[in-house]
Amino acid sequence: MGESSLPSPRQPDSFSLGNAAMRRPATARWPQRRAYAALDLGTNNCRLLIAKPEGDGFVVIDAFSRIVRLGEGLAASGRLSDAAIERAISALSVCAEKLKRRHVTLARSVATEACRRASNGREFIERVYRETGIALDIITAEEEARLAVMGCHALLEPGDGPALVFDIGGGSTELVLVETEGGSPRIVDWLSAPWGVVSLTEHEPEASNPDLATRMEAYARMKQRVHESFASFAARLPTHPGADIRLLGTSGTVTTLASLYLELSSYDRSVIDGLIVPSAAMRKISDRLSRMTLAERQTQPCIGAERADLVVAGCGILEAIIDIWPAERLGVADRGIREGILRRLMARDGKPK
């Protein structure tokens, strides 16, 4: 890729994402405002954005999102299941059609934790290319963290104190400590923890047990598992970061909980992306959801049947994050890896010749 890597989790250092990654040079000319695309195939979701450059940013002209649960059963078998593969290829076929219809000329498609872990991950990637023409790139946890920050850091609250940006995925959770003095975010440390909403749910299925006491015991174990995976990173965090610390989350967990906080009857990105929510309120919602039965969670607006079994794991991960980084407020981002990819593609393509 020709880029510097993230600092080692064991030997924190710092680097800048760089202004060039966030905006095109003022003298650059976009090549006929052509369409760019970013596809993110995660452990739980398949998401696509197609956009055209506009000013210092871009305007989305098409999008697609589908829950495919690619990592379902991966923890037990070490492989992507046949059913999960078929779901993913079905979704990717839709993406391929959109790419053709929108005449996309420059795209990047990435796969994350499920394909990194699965013994048949490469075989799956090859099949996807044969059947859809989409060339998936299995990115490292380091690049996943970088792209997430690049895609959402603009939503960080103003301030001079350190900030923690996190992405709760299906198979992993990325934590990135950044500083923003001088404008461009500087990543000083990071962690990719092996727990996401799918992997954690599969390790603690009793979180949906009909018995309340059993559910609460499972939820406590969830949080403990996550705390243990965060331990080395937490030990490296500033011990007295001050009152100006900031917290920004990008994931289905935080956007769903933010929707419940606003009591929305249906999801509305326009009011969620960039919302600032009291961390205490997110804890309260997490506790309430962990106590509900699966059937009760399914009736909640913005959760439904597709997310009802996974949302509790997301709540446990979120609470563990707030435990180690007790910011008073939580920023909510409905943007991340795909937006990071688009900004990178456009920054490279927009350089003056």
Rank of each mutant, 00 (worst) to 15 (best):
Q32C: 01
R33C: 05
R34M: 15
L39S: 07
D40T: 11
N44V: 10
K52M: 01
V59H: 00
F64I: 01
G71F: 04
G78T: 06
L80A: 01
E86Y: 06
A88H: 00
S90T: 15
E97R: 14
K100W: 03
A111P: 14
C115I: 12
V128S: 03
T132C: 09
A135L: 12
G151A: 08
A154S: 12
P158L: 06
P158A: 07
G161Q: 11
L164I: 06
S172H: 04
L175G: 07
L175E: 07
G182Q: 14
S184K: 03
V188T: 14
W195T: 12
S199Y: 03
E202M: 07
P205A: 04
P210H: 13
D211T: 02
A220S: 14
R221V: 03
A231E: 15
L237N: 01
A243G: 14
S251C: 10
T256E: 04
A258F: 15
D273C: 11
I276H: 05
I276C: 06
V277K: 08
S279P: 05
A281F: 00
R291Y: 06
C302Y: 08
I303M: 01
A305I: 09
A313C: 03
C315H: 15
I317D: 11
W325E: 05
A327W: 08
G336H: 08
G350K: 10
